[in-house]
């Protein structure tokens, strides 16, 4: 079911999405995004480079924000922008909880802006904005 543009209001909140961060998921997403940087799969080298452990790559954070907003918006939504800033790393063993709030609507082209935040045990891993274009009610 796709959400219609007319059904969305500024201030609407998206349901929380907890993402368990396992060693396997951090490696699997890095490889699925073709990112072979050692800090995303080799704990020894990650520590040598100043990190506590391996950590999630930014392509995956983009992918999870994409998934989060489109799960809420539905399959007819078209993603127009994803703008993120990373804070603390996503390390194995933690959980990141994604939350989102509709912050703006643009009637001229049915774009909806969503402020997204992903918190883990250390603090904010990601803060940013996603923009999706939703169909009008009569079109769904």
């Amino acid at each position: 079911m796709t959400r219609a543009y007319d059904e969305v209001a500024v201030g609407d909140t998206l349901p929380e999405l907890p993402i368990p961060l396992t060693r396997t998921s951090i490696v699997a997403t890095a490889i699925a995004s073709r990112d072979y940087q050692d800090v995303h799969h080799d704990p020894g080298l990650a520590v040598e480079r100043g990190s506590r452990d391996i950590f999630m790559n930014i392509l995956t954070t983009n992918g999870l924000v994409d998934r989060y907003v489109t799960e809420w918006a539905g399959p007819a939504a078209v993603v127009k922008a994803i703008k993120i800033r990373l804070g603390v790393p996503n390390y194995p063993g933690d959980t990141m909880v994604l939350t989102g709030t509709v912050t703006a609507k643009h009637d001229e082209d049915n774009r909806v802006e969503i402020a997204v935040r992903g918190m883990n045990g250390l603090g904010a891993h990601v803060t940013g904005t996603a923009v999706v274009r939703l169909p009008s009610k009569d079109a769904t």
Binding site: T2, I19, S25, A28, T29, I31, A32, S33, L59, T60, N62, G63, L64, V65, D66, R67, T70, E71, P75, A76, V78, V79, I82, P135, A139
Partner: peptide
């Protein structure tokens, strides 16, 4: 699969067409 993204438009052409697309599309973030 790795992202846990179950939006059908990325793998199912029929589902993608049902949304007005011509067929499968790739996730934007990809």
């Amino acid at each position: 699969e790795a992202m846990g993204d179950q939006n059908p438009i990325y793998l199912d052409a029929e589902a993608a067409r049902a949304t007005g697309r011509d067929g499968i599309v790739a996730p934007a973030s990809m």
